[in-house]
Design a protein around this nucleic acid. Sequence first.
DNA 1: GTCTATACGATGATAGAC
DNA 2: GTCTATCATCGTATAGAC
Lengths: 205, 205
Amino acid sequence: MPATKMKATIKSVATDLFYRKGYYATAISDIARGSGIQKASIYYHYASKEDLLFSILETTMDDLTVYIRETLEGVSDVEERLRVAIRGHVGFHLTRQKENFIANSELRGLSSQNFRAIVRMRDAYERIFQDLIRRGIDDGAFAVVDVKILSYAILTLCTAGASWFKPDGRLNVDEIALIYENFIISGLKQAEGAVLRPPVAALSG
Amino acid sequence: MPATKMKATIKSVATDLFYRKGYYATAISDIARGSGIQKASIYYHYASKEDLLFSILETTMDDLTVYIRETLEGVSDVEERLRVAIRGHVGFHLTRQKENFIANSELRGLSSQNFRAIVRMRDAYERIFQDLIRRGIDDGAFAVVDVKILSYAILTLCTAGASWFKPDGRLNVDEIALIYENFIISGLKQAEGAVLRPPVAALSG
DNA sequence: GTCTATACGATGATAGAC
DNA sequence: GTCTATCATCGTATAGAC
């Protein structure tokens, strides 16, 4: 088999196993078995197990960022831009569920240098959403909200779908995206103003 | 040292290490070192590493459920009940950050029986929020939304705080809770209605 | 209750033949 | 490119002394 094809097979098998069993619980021998080769042969294609994980995460983040930028092209209305971005984010995460689940749960498997590289990409991606929200606030489309906190909240909420979504479940990707979209846009318009109130009760621990 | 005290020390050290390094990356010897004993001595207090993880998760879920139920006592208005529950959820998660982070990232470390036990507790907890939302819809306080999807979204969004919150950061627990609370309640009232639109573009992968 | 010593298995990775 | 064989290490857990 040509190197490029086997390399892709290994990556695909690893993605599936990392998703189903987790990075640490997956042994190189498992990936080899799934790929139909011996474990030593894996190292001809990838330098290490971590290298394989990094490759998956890097590709995912790259594709996600490119996809969202494409999605936004030609859309000018501030609110519609955020709606489009949410749709894109949800669509990408639910369609490429395994990779995205890994990207959100297995960063721990990376050494500090690789970790920083992925976090840098993630930060840049988050900034796209933060800019969209800020623009919406400046234009008066949204209420004056905390951009950082709510951008994390919004992305997390949409991403979470990747952990429970089932392609043949009750709702399809578009339906789920629409539910999120309306919830988020309404939340950002803040029909409900802030309410002053006493602090929560003290907690042990 | 009396058994109960050392047992608590071990649990506390393990919580800290599982939070900082992850369950798989933490060795029994690490926990022993942090507790000031030899690794073999750990097994006098806990049957296995998984037993220790399970103990942390069980206590956390128990305390969380009890806390939320207490928080809701005596509150009758539907909207205020959900607001109170959100405040409680956020407060608990940001105050007992480490345990909650583990509870949301290390379920993989459990064998199927223990896994099911924790998931059962989590499901029961989620049902509290689902009932609150459903009540709000029935009473006309909230729009007719998808309860399951949005309950997951709401809990995930609030829980996420446990992964980035810093006690001495820009905002304190109450401020963050209020931001979430207003965002969520506004989202559930849905000033913005559903918008029909074409499906998202096809995705590769 | 805690210690030392050790059994035992698994895993990531390498060496070198084909 | 893939194989067989093997290394080196580490981690959980147990045995038995104190």
